[in-house]
């Protein structure tokens, strides 16, 4: 039986980009307001889950050829390495630093090394959640 899900595919192709935008916003707003790497990673993972729901596993993996176990491992490595970098400057493990820079368009911007750590956390969360969802769905 051929299943007609044109509406689901059309809605998904638009809504996925809205969810990805919200994930980036949550990731970047985590410095001074609610948000951060964990929540951004969860919303990013929910965008991938929506893609897997609307389409099937093989189509999505043809478009996004990542092994999500490797993504989780890479995220954990980035988070640990950003903490280890502080040791070489004489600070204790996981110390973070920030400074103000004059960027061309944005003006004076505060850049912090905790963003690298948060990026690692986000990658680890995305990899773990998508791996769990895919492993559960394979049992059926």
């Amino acid at each position: 039986m051929k299943i007609n899900d044109v509406i689901l595919h059309a809605v998904t192709k638009i809504v996925v980009f809205i969810i990805l935008t919200l994930a980036i916003y949550l990731f970047l707003s985590g410095h001074h307001s609610p948000g951060g790497g964990f929540v951004g990673g969860l919303v990013l993972a929910s965008a991938f889950v929506l893609l897997y729901l609307a389409f099937d596993i093989e189509t999505v993996q043809k478009g996004i050829p990542f092994d999500f176990k490797l993504v989780a491992a890479l995220g954990a490595f980035i988070a640990a390495a950003s903490g280890l970098g502080a040791v070489f400057f004489g600070a204790s493990f996981l110390s973070q630093a920030f400074d103000y820079f004059d960027l061309p368009i944005l003006g004076q911007t505060e850049l912090a090394t905790v963003t690298v750590f948060e990026a690692g956390v986000a990658l680890a969360v995305v990899g773990t959640v998508v791996t769990i969802i895919l492993s559960i769905s394979e049992d059926v």
Partner: peptide, 19 residues
Amino acid sequence: IAFARYLERGVIIERKRDS
């Protein structure tokens, strides 16, 4: 969407679409 797919087809995430 997940509940609707489960009610309609019995499987939530498909391995390969048959269309």
